[in-house]
């Protein structure tokens, strides 16, 4: 059991660095580099989201709030004070996400289940409306263009490596977290919150902890993304952004640590292939979501694993 986990883990990291390390070497165009960058950042965002949903059982429909927050810190600071503020702005974005998620968390974690989902959605939409309407500060619907990272980070390959490094460190931290006592406690909260109270633990306090942690990674993702696309837009706050990150989790498998990353890759590649050819993108992701929920609730990674397990035990029975 433990052995298998070990192999899976080593396998992931080997594949991760092999694929994403070689992309700058083999990428035919800058476009491919951007695509790979998107997979990295969304993958990390989705894994952080899954700390809430897959691990703790809290379906937040408002993680776009922190993603947008991270992006707008970078966008606004670079626009106002210049490129040199790019990196500090990422830090400020994460810090403000910590503070804001603590504040909002105190309000929304008092209620559970569907209520939590609804309220996170409402706060996300509130942020979107403010960004959208506060034209002379945020640029409203126009967003902010021409956000450049300073110095050598302005080089696309260097920026890619920078993202790769930060994403790898983030995933590693999340991995440690899942295996830690806090991770175990959070999984227990999803499965049986009442029993966790009888362990003498505060359920809501721990939920708040993971809400803050997950949200700060969302802000990091937003900050990094602004340097990839060189532009930001209020839609980063919009509910469909939260919906997309949820879909990535569900496609990969919310019961799987690495699943959401795979889900992000799948969605971004589909988006690249199909999205360019149709304006009915939301119909497609709607149908994908429906299929996953009804037929493959464990996600691609989870279902493949379940299939392999059945296959193995079948072979074992025969032999």
């Amino acid at each position: 059991m433990k052995h298998r986990h070990r192999i899976k883990e080593v396998g992931f990291w080997a594949l991760f660095f092999l694929v994403f390390g070689l992309i700058p070497v083999f990428a035919k165009s800058e476009y491919h580099l951007v695509l790979a960058n998107h997979i990295l950042i969304w993958g990390m965002f989705a894994m952080a989201f899954n700390m809430l949903f897959g691990v703790t059982g809290m379906l937040s429909f408002g993680q776009a709030l922190y993603y947008g927050l991270g992006a707008y810190w970078v966008g606004l600071m670079v626009k106002t004070f210049g490129e040199a503020w790019f990196l500090p702005a990422i830090g400020f974005g994460v810090l403000s996400a910590v503070l804001l998620s603590m504040l909002i968390g105190l309000l929304v974690i008092r209620v559970s289940g569907v209520y939590f989902t609804v309220l996170t959605l409402a706060f996300g939409q509130l942020a979107w409306q403010i960004t959208f309407k506060w034209y002379h500060f945020t640029g409203g619907d126009d967003g902010i263009q021409g956000i450049m990272a300073p110095g050598i980070l302005g080089n696309h390959i260097v920026y890619y490596c920078f993202t790769l490094l930060l994403v790898a460190v983030s995933i590693w931290i999340l991995r440690r977290l899942v295996n830690s006592p806090l991770g175990l406690t959070l999984r227990c909260i999803r499965q049986n919150p009442d029993r966790v109270r009888f362990l003498g633990r505060r359920v809501r306090r721990n939920q708040l902890r993971i809400y803050v942690i997950s949200s700060s990674f969302a802000a990091l993702a937003g900050g990094l993304m602004s340097g990839v696309n060189n532009s930001i837009h209020p839609d980063m706050f919009y509910w469909t952004t939260s919906g997309e990150v949820i879909l990535m989790g569900v496609i990969g498998g919310i019961g799987q640590f690495f699943g959401p990353f795979i889900g992000a890759a799948v969605i971004i590649i589909i988006q690249d292939v199909v999205g360019a050819r149709t304006e009915y993108w939301s119909l497609i992701i709607g149908l994908v979501m429906m299929t996953m929920v009804l037929l493959l609730p464990r996600g691609l990674v989870g279902e493949i694993q379940a299939f392999m397990a059945r296959f193995k035990s079948g072979a074992g029975n025969r032999g």
């Binding site: 009915y280 939301s282 979501m289 929920v293």
Partner: peptide, 19 residues
């Protein structure tokens, strides 16, 4: 975990109906 899946399924309704 029916609650979460209800939201996800009805969320997919929104997307499909919109288009």
């Amino acid at each position: 975990e029916e609650g979460g899946f209800q939201i996800l399924l009805t969320y997919s309704f929104i997307l499909v109906i919109d288009d």
